[in-house]
Design a binder for these strands. Structure first.
Lengths: 182, 182
DNA sequence: TATTCTGGGCTAACAAGGTTAGCTTCGAGC
DNA sequence: GCTCGAAGCTAACCTTGTTAGCCCAGAATA
């Protein structure tokens, strides 16, 4: 049951391009991800990229999808260890992913999410672990926002240099545990 | 005791330019804020702007300063009403400011904060109300992150269209109240 | 008063970035 | 053997930030 999405998404050349783009992003950050640079890394010229992606945004969307898949996997793995506190474990996984892939993380969250162009169920899969751990939708959204806020402030260098970010996470996770509903 | 900062910051022409920039930002969003458009709105040409600001970032910094001043004032006003819950009142003020000025808010938080180029004490002034209300530094940072996360997810259109954002705020504010320390 | 300096404007121009138009080439399939 | 589409290329365009270098008017100074 190969879906149309998979087809259009996963042609080999497209995949190669996305991988190259990812490398650039991880290594040199978002400003470095230009069509010309990407093409050069692939041994071709920028306009040729448009044979594979309608525009840069479409390319970035694939990076976003990748990010969702990876972070969803990270959350699932975190829960699979049967941690004493699911919430803390998810928080730690969330933070780790964002710190290890800050550029992708930013790409994933900076803009409105084009849900209709995402693989079906992907967003749900990424959100489910936390929703389940928090026991209420409102609580899950608060916890997500807390994690997102902490991560964003951290990777955007908004905390003072001497700030104890671990302590802020602990305070936050404690607060989330206290409002959790079974 | 006119400080050097005030001098270089507040020459009348600079102020006019910042005001025009702010108008563009509020009305048409960040992509609309180009040097040419800004210059045109002021009846001049783009290169002339560089007689007043070394680069675009310096201009944006003034918008950021403005945003900090306004939001600090909003927090102070919120506390001045002697609300039953300071935390909830600050949260509401935070959210209101971000929703009313999403572009400035994003500008303020999107990037590392160039503290050395900010008026002395401004960041502290903006942060103090929450720090005081939460009673602990870690708690204040968690609360700040929560508010920031909720606001960012909201203005970036990340919640599902039918999401009950009010409920998420309530859950979050409740959690923060419970970890508050007098 | 005559000169000088400087603040603030202008034009021309550049480089970088995304993107389009239109040509070519090559291999699969009829 | 011919066709056709996928995938490359060059040339070019527009927008954006930015620099170089010119000019003018009014304040400051000799």
């Amino acid at each position: 049951m190969t879906s149309v999405e998979t087809d259009t998404r996963l042609t080999p050349r497209r995949r190669e391009i996305v991988e190259a783009a990812r490398l650039i992003l991880e290594r040199d950050g978002e400003p470095a991800l230009t069509m010309r640079r990407l093409a050069a890394d692939l041994g071709m010229k920028a306009p040729s990229l448009y044979k594979h992606f309608v525009d840069k945004e479409a390319l970035e969307l694939e990076l976003i999808v990748l990010g969702f898949e990876e972070s969803a996997a990270a959350f699932e793995a975190a829960l699979a260890t049967r941690p004493r506190s699911q919430i803390a474990a998810l928080g730690a996984a969330y933070r780790r992913y964002a710190r290890e892939h800050p550029h992708i993380y930013r790409l994933m969250t900076d803009r409105p999410l084009p849900r209709e162009r995402l693989p079906v169920g992907l967003e749900y899969r990424a959100a489910a672990p936390l929703a389940q751990a928090m026991g209420s939708v409102a609580g899950a959204r608060a916890a997500w926002a807390l994690a997102h806020g902490l991560v964003m402030l951290e990777i955007n260098g908004r905390f003072p240099a001497d700030a104890d970010i671990d302590a802020a996470w602990e305070a936050g996770m404690t607060a989330m545990e206290r409002i959790r509903q079974s």
